[in-house]
């Protein structure tokens, strides 16, 4: 089979949220001599990207997205095992993320966490109602590349500004990228507080992260 056919099949297995098919396609593509890295990047990743788009449009729902993520993780693990050590895909970056203190909304943040993990980021989800100091401590401890914060309300949003200040005070701000999200966050807000970027949707966040980290 042509490799483009394998890529299509891989993407489709993710769209079908078919864990068994994803596993089988990963294994058989290896037997057929397809480059595992290409299978990941042009096959399965394409599938999960489409899945993210469908979720943004209300055509796929959260449980489906999570099952697709599981299928993706399983298939990618099989393909990564087949990579020579020097080609094994490293995690794209370490991300510390949480909902700021005083804010208990974490549905959107949870969705972003899932999508980031499945795209190959090492995500440490601190949870919700998280004191600013905890973001800073964890970022330092994990040598994080990115610190992400979510806030749903205009009042708790101020925590995202405090986080910027706290990272500066701890001498970490130049070492990490910061991203803000949540219902009331905007590009304007990100610029105003000095955050690196605003992630509007899961896919938007992933696209911008790629740009900022590369």
């Amino acid at each position: 089979m042509e490799k483009t056919e394998w890529f299509k099949k891989a993407a489709q297995s993710i769209l079908d949220t078919d864990d068994d098919a994803a596993k089988e396609i990963a294994q058989k593509s290896l037997e057929d001599g397809i480059d595992p890295l290409e299978m990941i990047n042009q096959g399965f990743t394409e599938g999960i990207r489409k899945m993210g788009d469908l979720f943004d449009r209300g055509e796929v729902f959260l449980p489906g997205l999570l099952i697709a993520s599981e299928a993706m993780t399983t298939a990618v693990a099989i393909l990564e095992d087949a990579l020579p050590d020097d080609k094994k895909k490293e995690k794209l970056g370490v991300i510390v993320i949480g909902t700021v203190e005083g804010d208990i909304h974490d549905i959107g943040k949870g969705i972003i966490v899932t999508m980031l993990r499945v795209h190959g980021y090492d995500v440490h989800d601190l949870g919700r109602d998280i004191p600013i100091e905890k973001f800073v401590t964890k970022a330092k401890e994990l040598n994080a590349d990115v610190v992400g914060s979510s806030a749903m309300m205009t009042t708790t949003q101020l925590g995202q500004k405090k986080l910027e200040d706290a990272l500066k005070e701890a001498g970490l701000r130049d070492k990490v990228k910061t991203m803000v999200g949540g219902a009331v966050a905007t590009d304007h807000w990100a610029k105003r507080i000095g955050a690196d970027f605003f992630g509007e949707t899961p896919q938007d966040t992933i696209d911008k992260l790629e740009k900022f980290l590369n």
């Binding site: 449009r57 209300g58 796929v60 729902f61 959260l62 449980p63 489906g64 549905i107």
Partner: peptide, 10 residues
């Protein structure tokens, strides 16, 4: 919101 978010889905 403009569409009902499917946190349950079914």
């Amino acid at each position: 919101s403009e569409f009902v978010l499917g946190l349950h889905g079914d």
